[in-house]
Design a protein around this nucleic acid. Structure first.
Lengths: 120, 120
DNA sequence: AAGGGCAGTTACCTCCTGGATACCGAGGCC
DNA sequence: GGCCTCGGTATCCAGGAGGTAACTGCCCTT
């Protein structure tokens, strides 16, 4: 098993786009969760690190939602040392495409978005 | 001035995707409003036709939100016959791109989305 | 002058989301 | 046995999103 980088705690620290963007993926945290799962399965408490404001209940809600939507899978390993792991399903992985497209749009028009927000 | 097609009242009648999709653009009606403005300016009461469930208050809210975001412009014509018209700004028009990409993704994975929804 | 469309506004209500806080059971470590 | 971490639940609460119903002011037509 290849050892992935741990998720940096400040991953989403700077001006969180979610609050500005004119679109949302799933509930408040869904898009960030998907981003966190981009390069492999992650564990519950591992996911809380970059979203350090989110309480377990809220993360559970978001994950259950993604699970119901078929975007994320939850696997409880037989070996308890491995715990519970969340991963993107095929469908979930395919969502990275529109997600990236949305992020690209946002990046491209970031200044205009800020301007509009400031003017109002 | 070229005469555009009036908006068909049943434009969004069939199983509204917004309720199923794992993403949202702006508030509940924003994406549909943007679609309605795709081929030219529309008037307030004209917009209410395809969204025939929406009350004036709610439509106003949505439009004001889009206006604040710089996606939609509101122009009050000097000639009162022309009334008030809403149109996409440059920025708003540029959002059609990610919006289409999202719709394309949804269309492509529609069955999987329905399956996931049904299984839960 | 009376009525009707247009473009909203206002007051009020309900439900849902997101968050705070506290608690819990299972398993590992000392 | 006592404590830690992991992976959650249970309960309560505030704010906002969305909806209903009623009302307004303006202009136009008849």
């Amino acid at each position: 098993m290849t050892r992935r980088q741990p998720l940096p705690p400040d991953m989403f620290d700077e001006l969180c786009p979610s609050s500005l963007l004119p679109f949302r993926f799933g509930d408040k945290w869904a898009a960030l969760v998907i981003r966190c799962l981009e390069d492999g399965p992650r564990r519950f408490s591992e996911l809380r690190v970059p979203l350090h404001r989110v309480t377990p209940k809220v993360l559970t809600q978001s994950l259950r939602g993604l699970e119901r939507g078929g975007l994320v899978s939850r696997t409880v390993h037989a070996d308890p040392k491995l715990g519970v792991e969340y991963a993107l399903t095929q469908l979930g992985r395919s969502m990275l495409e529109p997600l990236d497209s949305a992020c690209a749009w946002a990046a491209e028009h970031w200044d205009e978005l800020l301007d509009a927000r400031d003017r109002s």
